[in-house]
Amino acid sequence: MALPFVIHLIIFRYIPIVGWVMAFQDYKPARGLFAQKWVGFEQFRILFSDLAFYRILRNTLAMAAIKLVLGTVFSILVAVLVNETRSKFARRSVQTISYLPHFVSWVVAANIFLNVLSPDSGILNNILMAFGIIKEPVLWLGVPEYFWHIIGWSHVWKECGFGAIIYLSAMTAIDPQIYEAADIDGARRLQRIRYITLPGIKATFIILLIMNIGHLLDAGFEQQYLLQNGLVQDYSEVFTIYIMKYGLKMMRYSYAAAAGIFKSVVSIILIFSANRLAARLGEETLV
């Protein structure tokens, strides 16, 4: 019963990996994959000597790190706030509302940010002008220095509610007796959070952090692609955009494939080291 599906799997998921040999050729689509001119590591040599490559690498690492740090901090903050709320109705309402952005596509979210950041009537410019912080509207999406901010904060807006789920479930697993004992000792609310709640989610925090480090070369793609424009491209281009530009637009297939392989191979190394590290620490925290 599984045989047709195994064939399907090999065709759609394993044959493209065989296609990696393209990166060692000067691929021309008219000929078959094994009737190409072989060039060895030439494509990789060009890749590593291209200044644009290092810019892409910088952008990818920077945006992935920003998203990781901001996303983690705000997910934990939301989880703490919900955890400190007793009323069932309030908890449910806040959670349901905070999940909403997670379920809509980045296309919808990008549209929302185009609106919020618009220089014509965007709410951000309106508020900042009402408080006299800025004198005239700013074209937020057109300033290169702001792009990483926009990526980081739009990620927080979209994912912090959903990201809180896992921390919240770790918090509900904390023994209520510890809180009761703290109350008897006269602990204040902030002290309860500082000395009970946060240490209680430490294991979850470490595991998630390590797992996410495995995805540092994966800064997302849709977000950058949908929010970028010509003015900010030095700060917005990430690997997938680079590969699309060289591969599908400029038709330098082998070169783009080489860039793709670099990203895949480094990612696999990162993910496996992260998994091993997490497994080791996981055992220790269990003991």
Binding site: I11, W20, M22, I243, L248, Y253, S264, I268
Partner: peptide, 15 residues
């Protein structure tokens, strides 16, 4: 394995 490794955009496109 396919959760960790994929062929990438260009080889997949040609397939």
């Amino acid at each position: 394995i396919t959760m960790y490794i994929d062929g990438g955009l260009i080889p997949t496109y040609f397939l």
